[in-house]
């Protein structure tokens, strides 16, 4: 018979003492901030931060900018421009275009880029081009993967619904900015990966770890939970003064 540990309670005082004993320095935190600014493409903030906090970033700031241009192009819906820009990212590479390297190594990404292009055609009402593009470029990708195929079908059904209010949300979502951001995020991550930089923002991981850790611990102990609501982050009455 398994022995289940008693649900213990950790009082706040004890918790706080442990909190204070965690070793984390300001320069550690500064590097986490820099990681975020760089990967998320906040170029000028990253530059200022390098100065103000004496943090040396591991990338040159120009690469942030070009990466962001790709992202912006995708967020605008200009897939063609995004692809051109990716290719410009590293023209010296002798292995051929970077885009090809990235895309060759990541069929999912390639599909999603093409899918985004299709979505943009449909958004612009260029039905004929959309159909042709779907048949010529996307259909063969779909043949290899049932997942791609169903995604393709979902995208094509945009044509059927004509943006009415009765359109199922799963389909209309494809036209939302979130879809563009999703694609842009994937491309961003792929580029970062090809530069062998970390692709996931450490602060995002930290939030995930916090979420997981608290969720797990809840099953074993009672403890003071942390939340990331505005008051916890910015303090009381922060919305105006900040």
């Amino acid at each position: 018979m398994p022995h289940v540990p008693p649900n213990m309670k950790i009082p706040r005082e004890e918790w706080d003492r442990r909190i204070h004993d965690v070793q984390i320095s300001k320069s550690d935190l500064n590097r986490l901030i820099m990681d975020y600014l760089v990967i998320e493409g906040y170029k000028s903030a990253a530059e200022e931060f390098a100065q103000e906090a004496s943090v040396v970033p591991e990338v040159d700031f120009d690469s942030i900018e070009s990466r962001m241009k790709v992202r912006e192009a995708l967020q605008r819906g200009d897939v063609e421009d995004a692809i051109v820009r990716v290719n410009e990212l590293n023209p010296e590479t002798r292995l051929g275009s970077l885009m090809r390297i990235i895309l060759d190594n990541n069929r999912g990404l390639f599909f999603h880029l093409q899918q985004q292009k299709l979505i943009e055609y449909i958004r612009q009402g260029r039905v004929m081009e959309a159909l042709q593009f779907a048949q010529e470029e996307l259909a063969q990708l779909g043949e290899h993967s049932p997942e791609f195929l169903s995604e393709l079908e979902r995208t094509m059904s945009l044509l059927a619904f004509e943006h009415s209010s009765s359109t199922p949300s799963a389909i209309i979502d494809l036209l939302s900015p979130a879809q563009r951001m999703k694609t842009a995020g994937e491309v961003n991550a792929a580029i970062l990966e090809s530069f062998s930089q970390g692709k996931e923002v450490k602060l995002v991981q930290l939030v995930k770890l916090l979420s997981w850790g608290q969720g797990m611990l809840k099953e074993h102990a009672e403890f003071p939970k942390m939340t990331l609501d505005d008051e916890a982050i910015l303090g009381s009455g922060s919305s105006t003064s900040l």
Binding site: I19, V22, L206, M226, L228
Partner: peptide, 11 residues
Amino acid sequence: LEMMYRHTAVC
């Protein structure tokens, strides 16, 4: 942000 790190570590 710092508290988030510390809190996670303690968890």
